[in-house]
Amino acid sequence: MPRVVVFDEFGGPDVMHVVEEPVVEPAAGEVRVRIEAFAVNPLDQMMRSGTSPATVPLPHARLGVEGTGVVDALGPEVIGLEIGDPVILTAIPDASVRGSYAEYTTIPASRVVARPAGLAITEAAAIWVAYSTAYGALVEKARMRPGDHVLITAASGSVGRAAIQIANQIGAVPIAITRHTAKKDDLLAAGATAVIATDHEDVVEAVRHHTGGTGADIVLDVVMGPGQQDLLKAARPGGTLVAAGFLDPRPTSFPRSAPLTIFSYRSFEHTLDAVVVRRMAAFLNAGVRLGALRPAIDKVFALDDVVEAHGHLEKGLHAGRKIVVTV
């Protein structure tokens, strides 16, 4: 029988184990996907450890919010898809029940898109969460345009790297922020026009320098916390800040009034919108075809080594690149 990763209690990576389960037939409007690979995300770690903001019912909980595979079966009323189609999972509404850490999963047909030609399976498994988040925040929410100076926090992370590439594809100017000077060369090689290392530079002064004194048109803040005050000062009057993450658990003091637009963004507000997902998929396909969009992969594990993959994530050994598990 097919294998699936489950956990019966919250804790460290070793609470996960692989079991065998019968294949589930897709219901009306669903497809069954034979998973070829999935990526390990911080949300998976939060679900497994019991720190996720959403309730995770135990025992026998599953994991996995992104992955890629091949359509294996079609439920009634499914149109536009065929058995054998390679697809990417765009949203799994109930990952604790049908997550992608498995050889097979069923999912609404509206929650898959065609896999872009030219992507390796490991890349396809790791592209959607980061790129849809960065695209949704920058393009759909902030309306990024060519020539915009875009300040990107946590730029070494998967969303930050995706944001750099997406800004370049649009014709904007990505300015990366990192905490460590040692990461500058890597981020410049990843496509950043300029890199600000906060261990040696003042963010506001550096942004003014790199924007000719005007400030950033758009700020993508996936960190939050007290450091956001410097980001607000670094934005130009009339600019936009999109708060799209919470890497810093300390309180964030949003100003009651500021000379810029502030959005709070969560990717599910777009990944559950079929119209926006269609735009995301078209943008992704174009970027892959042009060679502008390509996820950075750190290490690939086998399904039997999923505990080791989570340990690798928790130790921070991935340096912001994606960890992928092949099935």
Rank of each mutant, 00 (worst) to 15 (best):
E20H: 11
V18S: 01
V276S: 15
R294K: 15
I107P: 07
T211M: 07
L151A: 05
R266F: 03
S52R: 05
I152V: 13
E36I: 01
T211V: 10
I88P: 00
V15E: 02
T133D: 06
E77T: 04
H318E: 15
R279K: 14
A197Q: 10
P26K: 11
M46Q: 09
P76N: 01
H17G: 02
E9A: 15
G118V: 07
A258M: 08
T181M: 03
I166Y: 02
E21L: 11
G147Y: 09
A194C: 07
A130M: 12
G136E: 02
E21W: 09
G212T: 00
L272H: 10
I164Y: 12
A192S: 14
T240Q: 06
T214Q: 10
A154N: 10
G69A: 00
D148G: 04
S49K: 03
V23H: 12
T214P: 01
K233R: 15
D230T: 02
H310W: 09
P93L: 03
Y101N: 07
V87G: 01
F254I: 15
Y101S: 03
V139T: 02
V222H: 10
N168K: 15
D148M: 04
D14P: 06
V275F: 06
G291D: 08
A130K: 15
T326H: 04
M47D: 00
R279P: 01
P2Y: 02
G213I: 14
E201Y: 07
G80Y: 02
L290S: 12
V139L: 12
E82I: 00
G12E: 06
D185Q: 13
T55Q: 05
L247I: 04
E36M: 06
A243G: 12
A137K: 14
E103M: 01
P93A: 03
T326K: 15
P22Y: 03
V275I: 09
R256K: 13
K183S: 08
D185C: 02
S100L: 00
I166G: 07
L43I: 13
V112T: 10
A235V: 04
L231W: 00
G11W: 05
T153L: 11
V277L: 15
M16A: 02
H312L: 12
I196F: 07
T252H: 05
Q228A: 11
H310F: 11
A37H: 09
I196P: 01
S267L: 13
A244N: 09
A189G: 07
V40H: 14
V204D: 04
G238R: 10
G67D: 11
V324D: 00
G227L: 13
S96E: 03
G215Q: 07
